[in-house]
Simulated assay, not measured.
Amino acid sequence: MQRTLCIATFVRMDEPQSPQDPKDPKDPEVRSLDARSLRGLAHPLRMQLLRALRQGGPATASQLAAKLGESSGATSYHLRQLAAHGFVEDAPEHGKGRERWWKTVHRGVQFDDALYEDRSPEVRGAAALYMHEIANHHTRELATWIGTRDNWSEEWNRSSDMSDWTLNLTPELALELINKMHALVGSYRALAPDDGTPGTEQVRVHTHVIPTHKD
Rank of each mutant, 00 (worst) to 15 (best):
V109M: 13
Q202D: 13
R100S: 09
R3E: 13
N179I: 00
F87K: 01
A114T: 13
V105Y: 01
R12G: 05
H213C: 12
A135C: 06
G73R: 09
K103P: 03
V30W: 01
D21N: 11
R80P: 01
F111P: 10
P92A: 07
Q2L: 14
H106W: 04
V30A: 07
R189C: 04
E93R: 05
S72A: 15
T139G: 06
H137W: 07
R100L: 12
D194Y: 00
L38K: 04
L184E: 09
R100F: 03
Q81E: 15
D195H: 00
D113W: 03
L53H: 06
A74N: 14
V109P: 02
L142G: 06
M13R: 12
L5I: 05
G108E: 04
P171N: 10
Y130D: 01
A135T: 09
H208C: 15
I134G: 04
T144L: 12
L79P: 09
W152F: 11
W156G: 00
I210E: 15
D21E: 06
K67D: 11
M131A: 07
T197A: 14
A128C: 07
E122C: 01
R158F: 05
S163L: 11
A65C: 09
L45S: 09
A65R: 04
T200S: 08
T60D: 11
Y188T: 10
L64W: 04
G97Y: 04
T60Q: 10
T170A: 06
H213Y: 14
G86I: 02
V123I: 10
S159T: 05
W101M: 09
D90P: 08
E122S: 13
T197K: 06
S120C: 04
L184K: 05
